[in-house]
Simulated assay, not measured.
Amino acid sequence: MNRSIRLLAASAVLVVSGLSAVASASAAEVVIVAPGAPPVERFEAVPAPRAGYAWDKGHWRWDHGRYAWVPGHWQVQRVGYHWVPGHWVEHGPNWRWVEGHWA
C-alpha cells in the first residue's frame, strides 16, 4: 500500500513538473528592437463594441528593416482580465516592442 502511494506521488510530481516546463516554454518572450522611433499612429475608426471581444488597435510593426502597419483586430475576451495594447518603448537609442497582453 505504501509503495503504491509513493509511486502515485512520484508520478504526480513528474506530471506537474512537465506541465510547468511546457508552460514556461510557451511563455518565451520575443524581443523586437528597431533602430528608430515608429511613425505616428494612423487614425483608425474603432468599430462598435462587440460582446465577448476587446478591440486591439492597429500599430506599427518592425518588418525586415522597415515599419509596416498592422490594422486593428478583435481579441477574444478573457473573463476577469483587461486588454493591454502592444506599444513601443524607447530603450536608449533603440525602440522595443511590448506585445499586447491580458492583465
Results as ranks from 00 to 15, higher is better:
residue 73 H to G: 11
residue 54 A to E: 11
residue 62 W to K: 06
residue 1 M to A: 15
residue 25 A to S: 05
residue 10 A to K: 12
residue 34 A to R: 01
residue 58 G to D: 08
residue 20 S to P: 00
residue 68 A to T: 14
residue 62 W to S: 06
residue 3 R to C: 04
residue 68 A to I: 06
residue 13 V to N: 13
residue 6 R to E: 14
residue 2 N to H: 11
residue 12 A to F: 02
residue 53 Y to W: 15
residue 17 S to A: 14
residue 94 N to I: 05
residue 10 A to W: 15
residue 31 V to H: 11
residue 3 R to M: 06
residue 94 N to D: 15
residue 92 G to Q: 05
residue 51 A to F: 06
residue 100 G to D: 10
residue 79 V to C: 05
residue 78 R to I: 15
residue 39 P to N: 10
residue 35 P to Y: 04
residue 101 H to S: 01
residue 95 W to R: 02
residue 5 I to P: 00
residue 103 A to N: 08
residue 56 D to E: 12
residue 27 A to C: 07
residue 85 P to N: 15
residue 34 A to Q: 01
residue 8 L to G: 10
residue 16 V to Y: 07
residue 63 D to Q: 13
residue 17 S to L: 14
residue 67 Y to G: 03
residue 24 S to T: 10
residue 88 W to A: 04
residue 40 V to E: 15
residue 19 L to M: 14
residue 98 V to M: 03
residue 85 P to S: 15
residue 28 A to P: 06
residue 60 W to L: 10
residue 72 G to E: 08
residue 38 P to A: 04
residue 56 D to S: 14
residue 65 G to I: 02
residue 70 V to N: 08
residue 43 F to I: 07
residue 74 W to I: 04
residue 62 W to P: 04
residue 2 N to M: 10
residue 68 A to Y: 01
residue 90 E to A: 09
residue 26 S to I: 03
residue 80 G to Q: 13
residue 84 V to W: 00
residue 54 A to V: 08
residue 76 V to D: 07
residue 77 Q to G: 02
residue 64 H to I: 00
residue 97 W to K: 07
residue 27 A to T: 10
residue 44 E to Y: 08
residue 36 G to Y: 01
residue 15 V to F: 11
residue 53 Y to R: 15
residue 4 S to F: 14
residue 22 V to R: 03
residue 12 A to E: 00
residue 91 H to V: 11
residue 78 R to S: 09
residue 28 A to Q: 15
residue 62 W to D: 04
residue 35 P to D: 05
residue 58 G to R: 07
